[in-house]
């Protein structure tokens, strides 16, 4: 766990956004069963930015699905102390028949928010991702980076704009920038950091890119593959320059080590 000592008791909902305790998840039954996660313990503090790192098959997506409530763990506990977690996928997955603004409004609509409140909230969130002017465009009229920002605004709407407005937010991101070109990815990473600071939402960010994880996260958690377990974690908050490079090197070395153990098996 983190090195910092907490004043509040560890179970206190006041400081924890998500806590996973000894979470197991397997798919299928009998001899064909596949264990995706085995005894994962993880804690994300309120407003904390945690990057989950791992090679393919480490159950990153499974873990996010459990936190999002899209799936149930086979054993163990997943406890969230936030508003409904928002999920962002690798694809923007905007609804092609709705305008950008309507896409952002959709989670508010599902939460039963009144129309004028919805409109106001959606344009506020589009403003946050600097896309206010394109609210009435359809997804096919936007670039990949713009679509992904609309998806971010929509995800924020589902965690920050719903009924329990004062509850802290939790944003789950499943390799959201992996499909973008390098320039756009770089800009969106900066954008995400800005929005994270502006909103104070907690972020659980899944990636297989060590540099991205170190740049964005306050903490990097490395998962092993098949089955997924927490191998090690590093505090990387505020690292710059040489320190940042050193952290990337170190985490990369450990990641390679973890991957190479699979060759023997």
């Amino acid at each position: 766990m983190t090195a910092t000592l907490e004043i509040a008791p560890p179970q206190s909902p006041a400081s924890v956004a998500v806590r996973l305790t000894d979470v197991h998840k397997s798919f299928g039954h009998g001899p064909q069963a596949v264990t995706a996660l085995e005894g994962v313990d993880l804690r994300v503090g309120l407003g904390e930015f945690v990057c989950l790192l791992g090679a393919s098959g480490c159950g990153k997506t499974t873990l996010l699905n459990l936190v999002a409530g899209l799936d149930e763990p086979s054993a163990g506990d997943v406890v969230t102390h936030t508003a409904r977690p928002a999920v962002m996928f690798q694809e923007a997955a905007l609804l092609p028949w709705l305008t950008a603004a309507r896409n952002v409004e959709l989670p508010l609509r599902l939460a039963g928010v009144r129309r004028d409140r919805r409109r106001a909230k959606a344009s506020e969130l589009l403003e946050l991702v600097r896309l206010r002017e394109v609210g009435d465009k359809r997804p096919h009229e936007l670039s990949g980076g713009m679509r992904q920002r609309v998806a971010l605004a929509r995800a924020l709407a589902s965690t920050l704009g719903a009924a329990d407005e004062d509850a802290p937010g939790l944003l789950l991101m499943d390799e959201p920038f992996a499909a973008l070109d390098a320039i756009t990815r770089d800009v969106l990473q900066a954008e995400l950091l800005r929005i994270w600071r502006a909103t104070g939402t907690a972020v659980l960010f899944v990636t297989h890119d060590v540099r991205e994880a170190v740049r964005l996260g306050q903490r990097v958690v490395l998962l092993s593959s098949r089955p997924g377990r927490v191998v090690q974690e590093w505090p990387v908050d505020g690292l710059r320059g040489a320190e940042e490079l050193a952290a990337v090197e170190e985490i990369n070395a450990r990641l390679r080590e973890v991957i190479s153990t699979h060759a023997a098996a």
């Binding site: 600097r130 896309l131 670039s143 980076g145 713009m146 320039i183 756009t184 770089d186 800009v187 990473q189 900066a190 954008e191 950091l193 800005r194 600071r197 740049r215 690292l239 710059r240 320059g241 940042e244």
Partner: peptide, 24 residues
């Protein structure tokens, strides 16, 4: 955000908003 660590290069950073608007 003008991330000091962001690889935007040089001292003359046009600012995130401007870069983003250009990309868009």
């Amino acid at each position: 955000v003008n991330e000091p660590g962001a690889p935007t290069g040089g001292g003359r950073d046009p600012g995130l908003a401007a870069v983003e608007a250009g990309l868009d």
